[in-house]
Write a protein that binds this DNA or RNA. Structure first.
Ligand SMILES: [Mn+2]
Ligand SMILES: [Mn+2]
Ligand SMILES: [Zn+2]
Ligand SMILES: [Zn+2]
Lengths: 126, 126
DNA sequence: AAGCTTAATGCAACTTTGTTGCGGTAAAAT
DNA sequence: ATTTTACCGCAACAAAGTTGCATTAAGCTT
């Protein structure tokens, strides 16, 4: 389906996810790329990359949208069911390589879980 | 500190939380009360009630703000650390009276957890 | 290499959610 | 009844994200 051309813009955007293991705020990407591309373009590329299983998104406590690299996802199937963690000191958000234990609750059939954790990362706990 | 007057607006707003156990979208409250009060007033009352421990808030998967009744909270201390559940059929969001098992992750000190579950409620599972 | 097709981009205008400043209103204390 | 000030309405604003449309350029085809 979605044919994606590897344009300059796409390469540039992907390069920003490369060096880090942290998630990135959509809004920050737009600010950082202001001189190079339009915010509409940023949003559209993020959408495409998510549909292709290259990145995944989630909302933080304040409702802002975060994006992070996927590991082993495809356009067919996203398997990013892991918790996300934000450090209250450095504000960084990271994907935690831990499995979520989905609780069993009577009268509810739970199919999916989004877990957002808050605390202190190791670098800020000194 | 925050002295809250029991005005007509406050009573009206509280009455909407009374008959249901479900959470309510801030945006829906504003739409529903459009004829009776200004949206600024709605937001301000919601803020106050949350500070007083009468209601608590959380964000849904799309970043929209939900509010629900508290049980046993005060202005001093909120203890609404429970998961929230949204049914994919009826779209209703409810507080689940279940304790969250906060995971232990190496290198991270976790202080708080927001869990948003998605699935089917019992009324929609037929 | 030049031409062609159409996915991708830029831009402006718009939508939605939420906030702020300020003048006026009304709850409640005196 | 009068006074005090918390509360409210309104208008203007702000931030995040979306949409329509004309233009550009990626990457085939020849
Ligand atoms: Mn992740
Ligand atoms: Mn709740
Ligand atoms: Zn940190
Ligand atoms: Zn349902």
């Amino acid at each position: 389906m979605g044919i994606t051309r590897k344009t300059k813009a796409v390469k540039k955007l992907l390069s920003l996810f490369e060096p880090t293991v942290s998630a990135i705020l959509a809004v920050d990407l737009i600010a950082q790329l202001k001189e190079e591309m339009n915010k509409t373009t940023v949003y559209r590329i993020l959408d495409r990359l998510e549909n292709e299983g290259v990145i995944h998104s989630f909302s933080g406590s304040n409702g802002l949208k975060w994006y992070a690299k996927c590991t082993g996802c495809s356009s067919d199937k996203h398997n990013d069911i892991h918790p996300h963690f934000q450090c209250t000191s450095c504000k960084k958000v990271t994907c935690l390589p831990v499995e979520i234990k989905i609780p069993t609750v009577k009268n509810y059939t739970i199919e999916n879980a989004a877990v957002f954790l808050v605390g202190k990362c190791s670098e800020c706990s000194s």
